[in-house]
């Protein structure tokens, strides 16, 4: 039927990283971190029509200690920021963060005293998801992209090296204001 039928002698070679990534990406447990409008769309994604269960992710964990993905769904206020960080710290490693919606990603239209201008001031973000609020399809796309990222993540020394490379690249990167071209 599938791939396993065609294997020459019943086994398949892969790397430990790929195997671990494959296992990890298939069982991501999101923590419920609904804040505002996006939380409603997040719930919709889990409900009937969009059915997040297709990707093995419909079980939102109430406790951060059982979760490894935080979907920050909505605007983060200055009062909520310490709470958010504490919840993040309570999650076991490895963990990922999706910043859902413009408010969580950059403060969005609420450029004022009350809102943290981007949740990446508080926690490291893996996927920024635009939209106000993003459609459920967009959230699913973000989740699939995150799956891809988890699948291809490195382990051990390789992970350290990848992190170093990413940091160097980020330090060398051109600041947004010095970029030219279309606004995208």
């Amino acid at each position: 039927m599938g791939l396993e039928e065609k294997l020459p002698s019943g086994f398949l070679l892969t790397t430990v990283e790929q195997a671990a990534g494959w296992v990890r990406k298939a069982s991501v447990f999101p923590a419920t971190f609904g804040l505002a409008c996006c939380a409603i769309e997040m719930m919709t994604t889990g409900a009937g029509r969009y059915d997040l269960a297709r990707f093995g992710m419909e079980v939102f964990r109430g406790s951060p200690r059982q979760a490894d993905l935080m979907i920050v769904a909505g605007r983060v206020s200055q009062k909520m920021a310490p709470v958010l960080r504490q919840v993040y710290d309570q999650m076991p490693n490895p963990k990922w963060v999706i910043s859902m919606g413009v408010c969580a990603s950059s403060g969005g239209m609420f450029n004022n005293y009350a809102i943290v201008q981007g949740v990446d001031h508080i926690v490291p973000v893996d996927i920024y998801l635009p939209g106000c609020p993003p459609r459920p399809e967009m959230l699913m796309d973000a989740i699939l992209k995150l799956h891809h990222k988890i699948q291809n993540s490195k382990l051990g020394v390789n992970a350290e090296e990848a992190a170093r490379e990413a940091e160097e690249a980020a330090l060398k990167a051109l600041p947004t204001i010095e970029m030219k071209g279309l606004l995208r």
Binding site: N111, N112, Y113, A114, Q117, T176, I177, E178, M179, L182
Partner: peptide, 13 residues
């Protein structure tokens, strides 16, 4: 009391 917003950066602006 000021609104407390921050400048927003775009490409080249």
């Amino acid at each position: 009391y000021p609104l407390g917003g921050i400048p927003v950066e775009y490409k080249g602006a």
